[in-house]
C-alpha cells in the first residue's frame, strides 16, 4: 500500500481521451469557424443573393427567359458554352500529353523543360498573357509575318477577334490547371503496368488504349469538368482577344451591370450560367463515377 501512495503522476499534458492525430470535434469546429463564417458571408450569401436579385420585382420568370430570347445573351451563352467545351478538349488533350510525358520520361531535362512550360502561364498576369497573345496574333504580328514570309498566305489573316483567338488565349491560361490535375491522376498509374503490358505483347498504342485509358478515364473527365468550369467564367481573354464579336456571358453580364444598369437581368444571366455549369459538372462527375471521386479523395 505504501508504494502505491508514493507513485506520483508524471509531469506532462493531461489528456482525458486517447491521443489522435486530428483535433477533437469541438476544437476542430471552432478552429474552422472563421473560415465557415467567411464562406457563408462571401460564397453562400452572394450565391443565394444572385437568385434573389434575379427574382426581385417585375416578372421573374420572364427575366430568365429573356436570357434565352435576347439575341445578345443567347449568342453569348452559346459562345460561352461551345468555346469552353472546345477549350476543355484542347487544354486537356495538350495537358495530357505534357502530364503523361512528365510521368513517364526518364530524362531530367525534359521534365524540367515541361514543368517550366506548363507552369509559365501561372507566373504571368492575366493582362500580360493576353496582351502577348494579342501582339502575336495581330495583323502586323509575328505569326502573320511568318505565314506571309513562308508564302502560306498573301495578306494577313484576321486571327484576332475570332473564336480561334479566344480558345487559344483561354487554353493557354488554363494549361497549368490541366497539367496539374492530370499529372495527379497519371502519377497513380504504376509505370510497371506499362512495362508489363509491353512484355505481354502490347504496342505503345495498345498500352495506352487497354491500360492507361481505362485507369485515367475518370480523372480526365474531372479535368475536363474543371477546365470547362474555369473557362465559362473568363472575362478578360474573351474581351481582349475576341472583342465584342464573340462575347462571353461575363462580358454581357458586365455590360448589364455597368452600361445598362440592369441588375436583375445581370443576376438572371449569372444564375442561368451557374445552373448550366452545375448541370454540366454533375453530368460529367456522374459519368466519371463515384469510384474515381473516392479515389481522388
Amino acid at each position: 500500500m505504501a508504494t502505491v501512495e508514493t507513485v506520483r503522476p508524471a509531469k506532462g499534458r493531461v489528456r482525458a481521451r486517447p491521443w489522435r492525430p486530428e483535433a477533437g470535434p469541438v476544437t476542430g469546429l471552432l478552429l474552422a469557424a472563421p473560415m465557415l463564417v467567411a464562406i457563408v458571408l462571401f460564397v453562400a450569401f452572394p450565391l443565394v443573393q444572385v437568385f434573389v436579385d434575379a427574382s426581385s420585382g417585375g416578372v421573374p420568370v420572364q427575366r430568365y427567359t429573356d436570357v434565352f430570347t435576347n439575341p445578345v445573351s443567347r449568342r453569348a451563352l452559346a459562345t460561352t458554352l461551345t468555346d469552353s467545351a472546345l477549350v476543355a478538349v484542347v487544354t486537356v488533350a495538350l495537358g495530357a500529353v505534357i502530364a503523361w510525358t512528365l510521368h513517364t520520361t526518364a530524362r531530367r531535362w525534359v521534365r524540367v523543360l515541361l514543368w517550366t512550360t506548363a507552369l509559365v502561364p501561372f507566373w504571368m498576369g492575366m493582362i500580360i498573357k493576353n496582351y502577348a497573345i494579342y501582339l502575336l496574333l495581330a495583323a502586323n504580328g509575328p505569326l502573320n509575318a511568318l505565314l506571309m514570309g513562308l508564302g502560306v498566305v498573301d495578306s494577313p489573316l484576321s486571327l484576332l477577334y475570332t473564336k480561334f483567338a479566344v480558345v487559344y488565349g483561354i487554353s493557354y491560361s488554363l494549361l497549368p490547371y490541366a497539367v496539374l490535375a492530370l499529372y495527379s491522376v497519371f502519377v497513380q498509374v504504376d509505370r510497371s503496368l506499362l512495362s508489363s503490358a509491353a512484355v505481354l505483347g502490347a504496342g505503345r498504342a495498345q498500352v495506352l488504349a487497354t491500360v492507361v485509358a481505362p485507369l485515367v478515364r475518370g480523372g480526365v473527365l474531372v479535368a475536363l469538368a474543371l477546365i470547362f468550369l474555369l473557362s465559362i467564367g473568363f472575362y478578360v481573354t474573351p474581351i481582349m482577344l475576341g472583342g465584342l464579336q464573340t462575347p462571353f456571358m461575363a462580358t454581357v453580364i458586365n455590360q448589364q451591370v455597368f452600361s445598362l444598369y440592369d441588375f436583375p437581368g445581370a443576376a438572371a444571366s449569372a444564375a442561368i450560367l451557374l445552373v448550366i455549369a452545375f448541370v454540366v459538372v454533375a453530368t460529367i462527375l456522374a459519368l466519371a463515377g463515384g469510384k474515381t471521386l473516392r479515389r481522388m479523395l
Partner: peptide, 8 residues
C-alpha cells in the same frame, strides 16, 4: 519487349 515472347 512486345516481340521477344517472354513472360515477366
Amino acid at each position: 519487349p512486345a516481340d521477344r515472347e517472354i513472360g515477366m
